[in-house]
């Protein structure tokens, strides 16, 4: 592992001295340092974490036990599960559409080349960051307090969360547009609104569509947990079944969620191919 190669003549002789090593010394030290760092972090975490080792030993048994209690899936509540899945789907779709509508003007504010002035730029950015920083479930808690339990609170929560994601990617798309057609429209004497209509929108539409489809796919997953805080969707019966230890119903619900998410992902992929 020592690279003695420096003082070895480059002729075919002296092969006995030569050592080979894959990495340069500097690379090697970085590797050691990173490995050491990870090791220390792991040691610190394990040493300080508040977990009883017996629980860890017991965990596989407990998890297996839960699995046994879950099987076979109980199909008797399938109709109400199906309608809850449809509600989840509606929440995700409506929230995505509303989110897109709201995030377009926000993206316009948050893009450097379209925002009217510095104050509006910061307003746009603050909206995006605060929406992205607060998790859906926390938004849902807030809106359940306002609107009461139900799908409405869920839709607004998902919408609020989506604005940050959609708005950020959309404002980046606006910032990346080609300036040349805009210059031509200015030369034609078009007003600001007409320039947005003809110069900016046609250029950003493909990105907007792709981002919307992506977010719909994410929202489908997000809206499965809204019910846990009372904001509608499949999560509501899931929580209910868990609380009443109806584990065989729980497994049916889990299967239904997988089916919905997989179908949604396939549809999203198909739409993306179709539109692009």
């Amino acid at each position: 592992m020592v690279s003695a190669a420096e003082d070895t003549p480059m002729a075919g002789m002296g092969a006995a001295h030569r050592a080979w090593s894959r990495h340069s010394p500097r690379e090697r030290w970085t590797r050691y340092a990173v490995t050491l760092l990870i090791g220390l972090a792991a040691y610190w975490s394990i040493y300080n974490i508040d977990i009883d080792p017996e629980w860890v030993m017991d965990a596989p048994v407990q998890i297996a036990d839960l699995f046994i209690r879950m099987s076979p899936p109980d199909m008797s509540r399938l109709p109400s599960i199906a309608s809850a899945i449809v509600e989840t789907l509606n929440i995700a779709t409506i929230a995505t559409v509303l989110g897109v509508l709201v995030s377009m003007p926000v993206a316009w504010l948050a893009a450097q080349n379209t925002t009217p002035n510095r104050a509006t730029l910061w307003l746009g950015r603050v909206i995006l960051v605060s929406s992205r920083s607060v998790n859906t479930i926390i938004w849902a808690l807030l809106f359940v307090a306002i609107f009461g339990p139900g799908a409405l609170a869920g839709i607004i929560a998902i919408m609020f969360r989506s604005i940050g994601f959609l708005g950020k990617l959309m404002s980046e798309a606006i910032e990346e547009i080609n300036r040349a057609p805009i210059e031509a429209l200015e030369a034609v004497g078009a007003s600001r609104m007409k320039i947005i209509l003809y110069g900016i929108i046609p250029q950003v539409v493909p990105t907007f569509v792709a981002v919307t489809i992506l977010r719909w796919d994410i929202n489908l997953r997000e809206s499965t947990v809204l019910g846990l805080v009372g904001a509608g969707g499949i999560g509501l019966i899931l929580q209910g079944s868990i609380d009443t230890f109806a584990w065989q119903t729980v497994s049916t619900i889990l299967l239904a969620i997988i089916a919905m998410v997989v179908a949604g992902e396939a549809l999203a992929a198909w739409l993306r191919n179709k539109v692009m």
Binding site: A180, G189, Q203
Partner: peptide, 22 residues
Amino acid sequence: SLRMARRRIGMIFQGFNLIDRL
């Protein structure tokens, strides 16, 4: 009034400056 003046001045560009997707 600037836009009114610009609409009477036609401009042709090196890079054409068309809106590609329209």
